[in-house]
Design a protein around this nucleic acid. Sequence first.
DNA 1: TATGAATGAGGGTTCATTCAT
DNA 2: GATGAATGAACCCTCATTCAT
Lengths: 188, 188, 188, 188
Amino acid sequence: MQVIDAAAHVFSRFGYHGAGMRAIAEMLGIKVASLYTYFRSKDEALEVVCRAGLEQPMTSLRLACEQETRFEERVHRFLAAHHKLIVQKSDYVSVYMNERRYLTPEATVRINAAAREMRCNFDRLFDDARAEGKMDTAIPSRMARLMLIGVLRNITQFFLEGPVADIDKLVWQSGEHFVRGLAPRPDA
Amino acid sequence: MQVIDAAAHVFSRFGYHGAGMRAIAEMLGIKVASLYTYFRSKDEALEVVCRAGLEQPMTSLRLACEQETRFEERVHRFLAAHHKLIVQKSDYVSVYMNERRYLTPEATVRINAAAREMRCNFDRLFDDARAEGKMDTAIPSRMARLMLIGVLRNITQFFLEGPVADIDKLVWQSGEHFVRGLAPRPDA
Amino acid sequence: MQVIDAAAHVFSRFGYHGAGMRAIAEMLGIKVASLYTYFRSKDEALEVVCRAGLEQPMTSLRLACEQETRFEERVHRFLAAHHKLIVQKSDYVSVYMNERRYLTPEATVRINAAAREMRCNFDRLFDDARAEGKMDTAIPSRMARLMLIGVLRNITQFFLEGPVADIDKLVWQSGEHFVRGLAPRPDA
Amino acid sequence: MQVIDAAAHVFSRFGYHGAGMRAIAEMLGIKVASLYTYFRSKDEALEVVCRAGLEQPMTSLRLACEQETRFEERVHRFLAAHHKLIVQKSDYVSVYMNERRYLTPEATVRINAAAREMRCNFDRLFDDARAEGKMDTAIPSRMARLMLIGVLRNITQFFLEGPVADIDKLVWQSGEHFVRGLAPRPDA
DNA sequence: TATGAATGAGGGTTCATTCAT
DNA sequence: GATGAATGAACCCTCATTCAT
């Protein structure tokens, strides 16, 4: 097991402040002092995990947009990819979502720079949707973005809180719900 | 300032494990040892805060359902009440949302019992919506509930992460989006 | 035994970096964590000790100058007082002499401010000596001061390095030597 | 740069306990583990540095005594040589003076054996001075030795604590003061 | 009610050192 | 000769908690 995976897992499970270096070390079967061969500090470990937790969904979004042209399909594909991602790497995503606020100020700046790129990708997605006539023009991209992130957060959180039986269905219906909610009013 | 408010604020700001009794005491202008006059342990303080953070939204929901009959209005009123609530008491809500996982196993049981009551209120809301013809019958109540909780979480989180300029608009559009997404397909 | 005495003793014996909080605690018969009731950090403890180690010789010098008028007597009285001081409080003096370089930059500034006052007292001593005709006018006050501090350092160091048999004699002869060395050339 | 020079520099700058192997390695541009190719342990490095720090002044003293016959000149030459030495190799001298107390007991024994030889050289210097009529017969050689060592320590310390403007003058006047202070009383 | 003092446990981190490569 | 990885021990310090006052 990779050292950084162990860190992600432990941070995800116990929270950054609730997690001890000891727990990470034990999970790897090494001694605490040895961890410092792999990262300089707990802070840094958090940053590395957060960066991965941010970049993986970014990749999902980019791929979904590249491989699909229709808005609904893009959304569904993005959410499906995200679902697959959290099944395999939920730790990273959940740490990014729930623990990034404990990043060092400097690390926050660095992470935010990367996050800005993701926002651009979202905005492009919604611009395209509007061009397709799939999106109520009264809804600004920013709102749509915040709400889609909310969907992500929701899926992730329910996945983490305990095994949700039909999470596939939750994912699909969340996507469907999101798309429908965005659609222009039929009477307009 | 109330002792429990201070605890809520500190837990919200630094996370349960990131928060020290010292921070709570300093906020009240008393010494750490004095805190134990007000609660038996840090654990207990968390439970009290979480309970309040759960019950206040419950009240909002109950009131919204009592005072309104139309589904859309109920949702908007609920979200508006929630918005008002987090402006005043965001600490409690955010602690319930983000820190309840650090509750003692026993406390978790107690809190979950209360949470079950809220789930019932949600289910009634959606049963009524279906009766009103405002909700796609293919969507189970449970899904709708999870998604509405997601909306709550989203609003709360964005409020906390920093002052969102037009949060009123986010609240209203989140409600509108939620309602629309739930609506039966026009072609059905 | 006072907590700060223990710190002074341990710093003096093992050096600041060679000394552990454990050693201080053991000397007092308390646990390490309890030390932090008395000072905020090891840094701060060093500053307190250094301050005392600086102020006590300052007092000796002031008293010697107040109680005596003749230069030689002032020097002898000062050295004798210093000798008495290091018999009782050698720890403080030696820490000031040997460990003050490990002070925090901020603490260094604070200590140096106090040290400047002592330099003034020295300068006054030598001005008087010159007026008395006891001092070669070719020797600047600053030089004389540096050399007298050297004498202090010497006495202290020999005291610390192991019991010097006739330290009284060393003190007296150091003083005598210092005074004589300063005297104007007889043929001048 | 020689490995032992780096050790001397780091020990001098941070103190033996304040210095880490890492600092020495970084100064040489190698990794910590590689240091152990050059010495067996930190202890041993300290001993090597101390030995050099002791032997170099010994050489100065021997040369000064060989090349001069008059007492005053010997002292001045010795101090001048010492001054020149600390300009080039202050690290070694300062480590010997300030850090030798952290030597292993066994190393201490070895160093002290070498130091005894230096004491003999001093004693010879003062015996000659007395024969020349340059030294008050009431002052034992041992006292004179302790005081001359004090002068050395003083010069070294002031040099280290920061650039002293006219250190040449301090050196010369220290020597002059030392010699004069030792001289027999004119009325005797 | 309030607190100063004390503490066991544990926090993250650095240390000097070894050893297989 | 050089080093990455590993480690036991120690580092300073903070933690939540108790208790006599």
